[in-house]
Simulated scan of single mutants.
Amino acid sequence: MYKKILVPIDVLEDELTKKVIPHVECLARLSNAQVIFFHALPVSSAIINAYSFGFDEFKDHATVQTEQYLHQLMDSINLPHEHVSFSIAFGHPRDEILALADEIKPDLIILGSRRPNISTHLLGSNASGVVRGAKTAVLVIR
């Protein structure tokens, strides 16, 4: 049913990620799907990385930590390693998730969301922005 599943995560929201993983594993196993984890870093990290000229030893600390977290996540998930990858971008999470989805054309986007509160109702949340803007199915896990 699904060939490609995009899984945006916030590396600072470990509890949300833990809730999402069982759904990812189950749906990916059922259809032998490719899973792409994704995290968006703030633009300040992009500026630091722009000056690094691609040398890993000069990478921004947040970028290195994010890569380490995503590698650990990939190692811990109960799926074949060749079916799991990750991507990192710089910018606003909602916008970067939608841009990556337009690029890679996943069959499904699975993301976690906290319970809405007054600030998310007034300002909008990343999950609701992805649901509104996505051109594919979105599964929101709470």
Rank of each mutant, 00 (worst) to 15 (best):
P8A: 08
I9C: 04
I9G: 00
D10P: 00
D10S: 01
V11F: 05
V11M: 02
E13T: 12
E13P: 10
E13W: 09
E13V: 11
D14V: 10
L16A: 05
T17K: 06
K18V: 08
K19F: 02
K19M: 06
K19R: 10
I21E: 02
P22M: 08
P22D: 01
P22R: 04
P22K: 05
H23K: 00
E25T: 01
C26D: 15
C26L: 15
C26W: 14
L27V: 03
L27W: 03
A28I: 00
R29H: 03
L30C: 09
L30N: 10
S31D: 04
S31A: 03
S31V: 01
S31G: 06
N32C: 12
N32H: 12
A33T: 01
V35N: 02
I36H: 07
I36M: 12
F38Y: 12
H39C: 11
A40Y: 08
P42I: 03
V43L: 11
V43D: 10
S44F: 07
A46L: 04
I47M: 12
I48D: 05
I48R: 06
I48K: 09
N49P: 03
N49I: 02
N49W: 06
N49A: 09
A50M: 07
A50Q: 11
Y51D: 11
S52M: 08
S52P: 08
G54I: 05
G54P: 00
G54L: 03
D56L: 14
F58I: 02
K59M: 14
K59Q: 13
D60A: 08
H61S: 14
H61M: 14
H61P: 15
T63N: 06
T63V: 12
V64P: 09
V64M: 10
T66W: 03
T66G: 07
E67M: 04
E67T: 08
E67S: 10
E67L: 05
Q68V: 10
Q68C: 11
L70F: 07
L70P: 05
L70A: 10
L73C: 07
L73W: 02
M74F: 07
D75T: 09
D75W: 09
D75G: 05
S76N: 15
I77G: 03
I77S: 00
N78D: 14
N78T: 14
N78V: 13
L79N: 08
L79E: 04
L79Q: 08
P80F: 05
P80G: 13
H81I: 15
E82Q: 14
E82M: 11
E82K: 10
H83S: 13
H83P: 07
H83N: 15
V84S: 04
V84K: 07
S85Y: 10
S85A: 07
S85N: 13
F86K: 03
S87A: 13
S87D: 11
I88M: 05
I88T: 03
I88K: 00
I88Y: 09
F90S: 07
G91W: 02
